Amino acid sequence: MAQITRTSLAEQAADMILERVRAGEWPLGSKLPGENTLGPQLGVGRSTVREAIRRLAGQGVLTTRQGVGVFVAALDVVEDWEGLLRRADIVEVIEARTAIEAEAAFLAAERRTAADLRAMRRTLSERDIAVGIEAHVDADAGFHRAVIVAAHNAVLLEMFDRFVPRIREAMIAMLRIRGDYGDPHDQNAHAVIVTAIEAQDASAAASLARDHLRSLRAAVS
């Protein structure tokens, strides 16, 4: 007969804890019982409880506060970010980008430096002269990233960087179907965002960024 390993016991204990969280026994933000109480309830030892908690903490369900205890951080397993983006509809991704980039454009108008403006102008020019669909898509991403860099918000930048592979794949596919890219109207839509940021017109910059991405959403939906 095969023996049950400690790893499988920890997995089983983690599943039992998760089911009790899902059932509402421990609401969001509540503290779990200590190892001495939880172990007997689950029918496992303290070391197995600790491993189960580590597993659930890694999945975003629990969080450990040193010297305080273990708390419920989410009511279910937090899905892997890359996995979520791979499965997301491109329209959903563009909608999320709209929220990020409109706010980034607003902040960029308030915080941009001379170096930020130079980077935006350079990437705007690179976007205009890029030859080939893949080169155009990469140059476009470079421009939008320059705007987000100018917002000086590390979280917004990290979120955008996570979107890039998914967006790149979808945009290349879309432009290959259309057979064209980089028309003057589209380039101007990007140029006016830079103008608004340079003028420190935060409301206009945000509105222009939002309008551009909404038009992109309409094109792919």
Rank of each mutant, 00 (worst) to 15 (best):
A206M: 10
M159S: 09
E19D: 14
E158F: 08
A206N: 02
E35A: 15
H152G: 06
S203M: 13
I4H: 04
R20I: 09
G67Q: 00
L175H: 12
T98L: 02
A173P: 10
V91Y: 07
G58H: 04
P165I: 06
V78E: 00
V194D: 10
I148V: 14
L62N: 08
L9E: 12
V131Q: 14
A191C: 03
A150M: 02
A52G: 06
A219R: 10
D140P: 12
Q12F: 13
R6I: 08
V137R: 04
I148D: 10
D180V: 11
A218H: 00
S203R: 15
I133C: 06
T64S: 13
R145P: 10
D161P: 12
I4N: 11
A52N: 02
T64D: 08
M1A: 14
L62V: 08
A206D: 05
L42Y: 00
A146W: 09
T195G: 06
L124G: 12
N188C: 07
T37M: 11
V91I: 10
N188P: 05
V220F: 01
S8L: 07
A205V: 13
A154Y: 01
V149Q: 12
L84V: 14
M159N: 07
D201S: 09
H190K: 04
I177H: 01
G45Y: 07
M174R: 15
A146R: 07
L84E: 14
A108G: 00
W81M: 11
I172L: 00
T64Y: 11
E169F: 07
Q41M: 14
R178D: 08
A96W: 02
F143P: 03
L42G: 06
I129F: 14
T37I: 15
T48F: 03
P27T: 12
G60E: 09
A73M: 00
A191Q: 11
S30P: 08
V91E: 04
R54H: 13
G67H: 03
D76T: 13
A135Q: 12
H190I: 03
R210M: 10
S221A: 08
H190F: 02
S203K: 15
A10E: 04
A191P: 01
R6H: 03
K31H: 12
R217D: 09
H190W: 00
R22G: 02
A52I: 05
A114E: 15
V93F: 05
P184W: 05
F71S: 04
R166D: 05
R176M: 06
P40H: 05
V93G: 03
V61H: 00
T123D: 04
I4E: 10
I129T: 15
E51N: 05
Q187M: 07
N36P: 09
V155W: 11
A202K: 00
D89Q: 02
N153I: 07
A115V: 13
A119W: 05
S215T: 11
D128F: 06
G142P: 04
G58V: 07
M1C: 03
V155S: 04
L42H: 05
V131M: 08
A57C: 14
R176A: 09
M1Y: 07
R6F: 07
A191F: 03
E101W: 06
I172Q: 06
E103A: 01
E82L: 13
E19I: 04
D116N: 03
G67I: 10
S215G: 15
S30G: 05
E103W: 09
H185L: 10
L124P: 11
R176I: 12
G60V: 06
G29T: 02
